[in-house]
Simulated assay, not measured.
Amino acid sequence: MLFLIILLIIICIALALFVLIQNPKGGGLAAGASGGSNMFGVQRTGDVLEKGTWILLALIVVVTLSITTVAKSGGTSTGDSKIQEQLDKTVTPSPIGNKGTQAPAPAPVKPVK
């Protein structure tokens, strides 16, 4: 599961870079790197960046759903965490309240003179 989380972070950073490189008018950082080449010009760079953005977005969805599936199935390799064990031990209060279920407090003890 840790691998999937690290993979998700890497994909998110790559997606952010892809979005920042793009320029809606076709210029931006992609235009400066291509020079005057017709083989990989501004239009083609825009297409590649746009397709890459959609592919990274689809990967984010797939990896996120994978993380959710693994987490719900309890696929942790280290077993239950200490926090989960502590939560399992704690008693949850009644949503109605404990007004009539608790015993009254004992009367104070009077000191002997």
Rank of each mutant, 00 (worst) to 15 (best):
G27T: 02
I60T: 08
V70A: 13
V70Q: 09
A103I: 05
D47F: 13
Q86W: 15
L29E: 09
S73V: 13
G52A: 08
K99R: 13
G52L: 05
S77I: 03
V109A: 13
A105N: 09
L87H: 12
V109W: 04
V91S: 08
E50Y: 08
P93R: 14
G27A: 13
T64W: 05
A14W: 02
V63T: 01
T69D: 00
E85D: 15
P24V: 09
K99S: 11
G35H: 06
C12W: 06
G26W: 05
L4I: 02
S94R: 15
N38V: 08
K72A: 13
L29N: 06
L15C: 05
T64E: 03
S34E: 03
I83M: 10
Q86T: 12
T64V: 11
V91W: 06
V109S: 09
V112M: 05
S94V: 02
S66M: 03
G52K: 00
K110S: 11
K110I: 07
G35L: 00
A31F: 07
S77P: 01
F18T: 03
A105E: 10
L57N: 02
Q43K: 14
T76V: 02
M1I: 12
S66E: 02
S66P: 00
L15W: 07
L57F: 05
L2S: 14
T92Y: 11
I83V: 11
T64A: 12
G28E: 02
S94Q: 12
T101A: 04
L59E: 06
L7R: 10
V61T: 09
S77N: 03
Q84I: 10
S37Q: 10
A33Y: 11
S81H: 04
R44G: 02
L87S: 09
F40P: 00
T78W: 01
P106S: 01
K72N: 11
G100E: 12
L29I: 11
L4Y: 04
I5T: 13
F40Y: 15
N98S: 14
V61K: 02
F3P: 04
I11K: 06
P108D: 11
T53I: 06
F40A: 10
G79V: 02
R44F: 07
G26L: 07
A58T: 07
K89S: 13
K25M: 14
T45D: 01
I55K: 01
D80Y: 13
K113S: 03
G52N: 04
S94L: 13
I11Q: 05
P111A: 07
F40N: 15
S37Y: 01
C12E: 10
L65K: 01
Q43F: 09
V19M: 14
L59G: 12
L87N: 14
V91L: 14
D80G: 07
I11L: 15
N98I: 04
S34W: 00
A107D: 13
P104I: 01
L4N: 04
S81Y: 02
S73R: 15
F3R: 11
V109I: 15
I6F: 07
S94T: 12
S34R: 04
